[in-house]
Design a protein around this nucleic acid. Structure first.
Length: 118
DNA sequence: AAGGTGACGCCCG
DNA sequence: ACGGGCGCCACCT
């Protein structure tokens, strides 16, 4: 686990953050889903890493990203998963088992459907 | 420069 | 439900 967080100039990470920023409150997305939407399929782990190195006070709603099982992924540092639980509960997406029902709360970005052209 | 690591995901007992 | 194994691949040391 990196203790020293470097400045994130990586465009890959920026693309990931851009996707995460679009997740509205009350919805969640999975790591793999974010990766695909960012144009980086099979990079779920990189999404996890990109979120991991976010500075405190970021505007990126990292807590809305969970794993494919609808669970809050365990952290190396205990305590952080608690914060995510609290934030998600505040957004009313946590089931009684502490998990998120993806059937109900998975974020599905609107299709651009930019067909105003013709 | 090479190998280790992981906030993942999927498949199989 | 649950754990183990493995493929993935950029980032870190």
């Amino acid at each position: 686990m990196p203790r020293q967080v470097k400045t994130f100039t990586s465009s890959r990470w920026e693309r990931i953050y851009a996707v995460v920023r679009r997740i509205p409150a009350g919805r969640v997305a999975t790591y793999g889903q974010v990766a695909s939407l960012a144009g980086l399929p099979r990079h779920a782990r990189q999404v996890g890493y990109a979120l991991h190195v976010l500075p405190e006070g970021t505007d990126v709603p990292w807590h809305r990203v969970i794993n494919a099982k609808g669970e809050i992924s365990p952290r190396a540092t205990p305590g952080w998963d608690r914060l995510q639980h609290a934030l998600l509960r505040r957004e009313r997406v946590l089931g009684r088992d502490g998990r998120v029902d993806l059937e109900h709360f998975r974020w599905e970005p609107e299709e651009p459907a930019r067909k105003g052209r013709r």
